[in-house]
Design a protein around this nucleic acid. Structure first.
Length: 418
DNA sequence: AATCCACAGGAAGCCCGGGAAC
DNA sequence: GTTCCCGGGCTTCCTGTGGATT
């Protein structure tokens, strides 16, 4: 299995890797999750946020804040930055003020009312089971735990729109009114959302109390992105390893996608990695281009690979229609092919209703593009197209053992109709 | 103007595996 | 043990609908 020559060549790879001087000084600085000591072009927003939250230093509960802005505009970083400095300040403060606790919840990960509350309980040192209790009970315990303590809790609900879309605004409603049930403890909320229309789904009472204050984060412009990249690059890369155009190109590419700093940083980091892997000493625009393809390809592959089996089957049906059918795939034909595949593999058949939902999920993931279209007398349906390369779909789905038996399947008659 | 296709997509509720409380 | 709750995947039943055709 493991031949000596292979071992030697692997050794050689490791050796060259160790010997060649790394171009990175500190790779972590280039990750989007890193919060630097300074956030360029967000001074205004940070000041604003700081002013709102500063009443914590006088022992009063700050107003609830709502932060809007698209992905990668620095919302989360700014919020974390301000909270970090705020809690440092409260510790060194001479005035006696309530203890400050901050709880950060990412509602994309923690996406049900129950789990948000369970998370908050954990933050105040209360263990609750991850299921089993009524939601009200978890809320009650949280109130009980915090009510008598002289503590101010600032709760950050990141991507809160995800929670509301999925599970309604009950928890938000409870949390905005929680202070009326607390004797000494106080709670302030910081909501973060990248959906500007998000307020429409909310109970008006929640809107008014949640957005007592609002801060909007505009997208970064290309020059601003350049500044951010330069700042991180100087800490992340060793001096002189970046070609001139590299930062500008990363910034330009990311600016094209609604000024996403996260994207820009990923590009820069991955460009560095691909340069390093090639054993080169200077990161050039070529590496940035490679990085762009690489990021795109990797995220798609990972998404495809982790799809549940039924979704894979639906996607595979769409793929088959795309390569064999003369016409565009529509819901009905996808369902037909999917039915054939299930019969072939001896799998349980889902209803068309459910398959429709799976199609929508694939659409949301950006793997396919589904558009409702009316063909007049011939009904209303969805036209479905792949929006990732078809050979990538074949490759990744082909890895799945469960789909091996249909790897060469051809849908019955390329369903020709009038 | 009326009809009618081929679905879209909402609502309600089932079932299951997790667990808590009594 | 019984009875309750939660969450996710799913089905059943249903009403709604854009626009070519009649």
């Amino acid at each position: 299995m493991f031949v000596a020559s292979e071992k030697r060549s692997l050794d050689a790879i490791f050796d060259t890797f160790l010997k060649s001087p790394t171009i990175f000084r500190n790779r972590d600085v280039l990750r989007p999750t890193y919060v630097p000591d300074e956030l360029p072009h967000r001074e205004e927003h940070i000041t604003r946020l700081g002013m709102i939250l500063s009443s914590a230093l006088r022992g009063a509960a700050p107003s609830n804040v709502f932060i809007y802005g698209k992905t990668g505009t620095g919302k989360t970083a700014a919020a974390k930055y301000v909270l970090k400095h705020l809690s440092e300040k409260t510790k060194s403060s001479e005035v006696s003020i309530p203890a400050l606790k901050t709880a950060y919840v990412n509602c994309r990960v923690v996406d049900t009312n129950y789990r948000v509350l369970a998370n908050l309980c954990k933050e105040v040192g209360l263990e609750v089971p991850f299921t089993g209790l009524p939601t009200d009970e978890v809320y009650r315990r949280f109130v009980e735990e915090t009510s008598d303590k002289n503590v101010l809790i600032i709760i950050v609900l990141d991507e809160v729109d995800m929670l509301v879309k999925k599970d309604g605004d009950d928890v938000l409603y409870d949390l905005t009114r929680i202070n009326t049930s607390l004797k000494r403890g106080r709670v302030s909320l910081v909501g973060i959302s990248n959906d500007l229309k998000f307020k429409d789904y909310l109970d008006p009472r929640v809107v008014s109390s949640l957005s007592e204050e609002e801060v909007v984060f505009p997208p970064y412009t290309a020059p601003e992105l350049q500044d951010i990249l330069r700042q991180r690059a100087s800490a992340g890369f060793r001096e002189g390893v970046l070609d001139d155009g590299v930062i500008n190109l990363c910034a330009a590419l990311a600016a094209r996608e609604h000024g996403d700093a996260r994207r820009a940083l990923d590009l820069l980091r991955v460009a560095g990695e691909s340069c390093e892997r090639a054993g080169e000493q200077k990161v050039s625009e070529k590496h940035v281009r490679t990085a762009q393809n690489c990021i795109e390809f990797d995220t798609v592959t990972e998404t495809l690979r982790t799809l549940p089996l039924q979704s894979k089957l639906v996607l595979y049906s769409i793929y088959l229609l795309e390569i064999h059918g003369e016409e565009e795939a529509i819901t009905g034909s996808v369902f037909d092919v999917y039915t054939e595949l299930c019969a072939q593999l001896g799998l349980d058949l889902l209803t068309q209703r459910r398959v429709g939902d799976l199609v929508n999920e694939l659409d949301m993931l950006g793997i396919i593009n589904a558009k409702v279209e009316s063909k007049g007398r011939y009904g209303r349906t969805k036209k479905i197209k792949l929006s990732v390369p078809s050979n990538q779909v074949r490759e990744v789905l082909g890895e799945d053992e469960a789909l091996k038996n249909v790897s060469n399947y051809v849908p019955k008659g390329s369903r020709q109709s009038s």
